[in-house]
């Protein structure tokens, strides 16, 4: 029989946070700030979409005047199904949240410090609410440097490239059909499809079981008749070679049932 998990000793966090910045930015430009979490082996932190338990990572950036953070971009999580039909979407080992930042034209030239304050729930068997902060400095250059490389942090650029792909309208790779309370996600050529509903998605029934299908089609029922229905989140498509692709979807239906067509959701 395993030993029951104990409360950890104070000061022993199971994840730590870092800020990843490019070396420099030019006023009027935009850049990506990376907020990296390094997570202890076997422990996990939580995605901001729909989960049965846990609480998502929270971050707050403190930046100089003229720096404006846009909506945080969350990498695709992993699906964790535990006894009791408990489904969570989690991050293990390492995750970099990408925060696009706009730098005003009149931002002050010179050194700039960016700090992050963060709270998260780390779970293994036990769950521990933890917090941490970090900061880093960069430069605001008056004129672009010769080498554009210094305007990107390599690990953050990699994290951005790995983010779920935004689907263009009528993209053939993933098709979503909503009929009444029933939704179908199709991905031609897929061996497996998994759907991870985002924070604003209409709740889905029995997701632990039905949120995944070993087929090129995934059917599920929405938990509540609600108008309009919104299907938003991440679709994970595994092809016949076992290669995974992640797509960000955001579709709603029901507002104009007579049209019979889905249309994209307005931005939040």
């Amino acid at each position: 029989m395993p030993t029951p998990a104990r409360d950890p000793q104070p000061g022993q966090a199971h994840a730590r946070v870092e800020v990843l910045l490019p070396k420099a930015v030019v006023p009027g430009d935009r850049m990506d700030v990376g907020v990296k979490f390094t997570i202890e082996k076997d422990w996990h932190l939580y995605w901001n979409g729909q989960n049965d338990s846990g609480t998502p990572i929270e971050i707050e950036l403190k930046m100089p005047t003229g720096f404006k953070a846009k909506e945080t971009l969350w990498p695709a999580p992993e699906r964790l199904v535990e006894p009791g039909g408990i489904l969570n979407h989690i991050y293990e080992r390492e995750v970099i949240l990408v925060v696009p930042v706009e730098v005003a034209k009149d931002a002050k030239v010179g050194p700039a410090e960016i700090a992050v304050e963060s709270k998260w729930l780390a779970c293994k068997e036990a769950c521990v609410p933890e917090s941490g902060g970090a900061k880093a400095t960069m430069k605001v250059d008056a004129v672009p440097a010769d080498q554009s490389a210094q305007y990107v942090h390599e690990a953050v650029a990699k994290a951005r490239a790995a983010l779920p792909i935004e689907l263009a309208k009528d993209d053939p790779r993933v098709k979503i059909v909503i009929e009444g309370r029933r939704a179908t996600i199709q991905a031609p050529g897929a061996r497996e499809i998994a759907f991870m509903p985002g924070p604003d998605c209409t709740p889905v029934e029995t997701l632990a079981d039905r949120g995944i299908a070993k087929a090129d089609k995934l059917d599920f029922e929405l938990a509540e008749s609600q108008n309009p229905i919104r299907i938003s989140g991440i679709v994970r498509v595994t092809n016949s070679e076992g290669v995974r692709a992640y797509y960000h979807i955001d579709t709603h239906a029901g507002a104009h049932p007579e049209s019979g067509k889905n249309r994209p959701c307005p931005g939040r």
Binding site: L80, V204, T206
Partner: peptide, 29 residues
């Protein structure tokens, strides 16, 4: 609304997940 999703995931679902063959990488069960 979000709460409804939680009800809907009935306990019986566990068994089916559990009965599946060994998890693939990235699919923790």
């Amino acid at each position: 609304l979000v709460a409804v999703a939680a009800i809907a995931m009935s306990a019986s679902v566990v068994a089916q997940e559990g009965a599946k063959p060994a998890a693939k990488p990235g699919e923790k069960q």
